[in-house]
């Protein structure tokens, strides 16, 4: 299954969660999200939490937390 984070294509296993894709994208960014410094925003502009399900071909962006 493919998803996109900051326009980078990420391959993850079937049934992966956002956490899995983010760790694959960057362990450093993953830790920044876990620590609350950054958040993941979905293609609709909503924050998505790390345990959330993924849909194939969906896109996310990393932003600084408020």
């Amino acid at each position: 299954m493919k998803v996109y984070i900051n326009d980078t294509e990420i391959e993850v296993f079937q049934g992966a969660k956002l956490e899995n894709a983010l760790r694959r994208y960057s362990k450093k960014v993953y830790r920044e999200v876990v620590s609350g410094k950054k958040v993941v925003i979905d293609q609709y502009g909503n924050q998505q939490l790390l345990q959330g399900s993924l849909r194939s071909e969906s896109a996310f962006w990393i932003e600084e937390a408020d």
Binding site: F13, A16, R23, R24, K27
Partner: peptide
């Protein structure tokens, strides 16, 4: 899932979560 995410390896399929 941690090893699946953070290690590098080849495989015959894309893998699937067993939940």
């Amino acid at each position: 899932s941690y090893v699946a995410d953070t290690y590098e390896y080849t495989a015959r399929d894309e893998g699937h979560n067993t939940y």
